[in-house]
Amino acid sequence: MTIPELTVYFLLAALAALIWQHTAIGRRAYGAAKQHAEKQGVVLLDQSVILKRVRLVKSRHSLFAIERHFQFEFSTIGDTRYRGSVVFNGPRLHKVELQPFKTEQL
């Protein structure tokens, strides 16, 4: 096996590991959105989160990290869709935010 062949195999393995990690973070983003929605008393719609942006950022834990922004929709009383977001810095959950929403009036 030559050095160029080893380099290609190494790059393919690194790409596969990156895709594997990205898929796992997507599942964690869904879990974080669902848990936060339940805690706030709202309903997560469509049972999904959507990747909106990926970028490199400076990290407190390492030199740089891949920041992933996921978006989801939720509802409070069923009449309006609101947006929420989940942000991961590398493998760490950074924040979960919900758009301001109205609650049921008694």
Rank of each mutant, 00 (worst) to 15 (best):
A17F: 13
L11V: 00
W20F: 01
T103L: 07
V57G: 03
V49A: 05
L18P: 02
E97C: 09
M1Q: 13
Q21L: 05
F74N: 06
L93V: 05
L93A: 00
A13Y: 10
H61K: 15
V42S: 01
F88I: 08
P100Y: 04
K102R: 14
G26D: 09
T103M: 05
R81Q: 12
T80K: 12
G41I: 01
H69P: 01
H69D: 10
D79C: 01
R81F: 05
L15C: 06
K58P: 04
A24N: 15
L6F: 15
T2M: 08
F64I: 14
F74L: 01
L15F: 09
V86K: 01
A65D: 15
T7Y: 11
Q40V: 07
K95A: 09
D46T: 07
V57A: 01
H36I: 06
G26E: 01
L12K: 04
V96I: 08
F74M: 09
Q105W: 12
W20R: 12
L44P: 07
V43L: 03
A13E: 03
M1P: 10
Y9N: 12
L12W: 08
L51G: 02
H22D: 15
A65E: 10
E38N: 08
P100G: 08
G84Q: 02
F101L: 04
L44G: 00
S85M: 09
L93T: 02
K58S: 03
G78R: 05
G78K: 01
A16C: 07
V86G: 00
R27T: 13
I77Y: 11
T23M: 14
R68Q: 13
L45P: 01
F10M: 12
K102C: 08
R92T: 12
I66S: 06
I19V: 13
V43H: 10
D46Q: 11
E38S: 02
G31E: 07
M1N: 10
G41L: 03
K102L: 09
K52A: 06
K52M: 06
Q99N: 05
K102D: 15
V57D: 03
T7A: 13
R92I: 12
S75Y: 00
I3C: 00
Q105Y: 11
A37C: 14
V54W: 04
L15R: 15
R68C: 03
Q99H: 07
R53P: 01
G26Q: 15
Q21M: 00
R68Y: 03
F72D: 01
W20Y: 09
H22N: 11
R53D: 13
H36M: 14
P100K: 11
E104Y: 14
E104L: 09
I3F: 13
G31M: 14
A16Y: 13
H61P: 00
V43K: 15
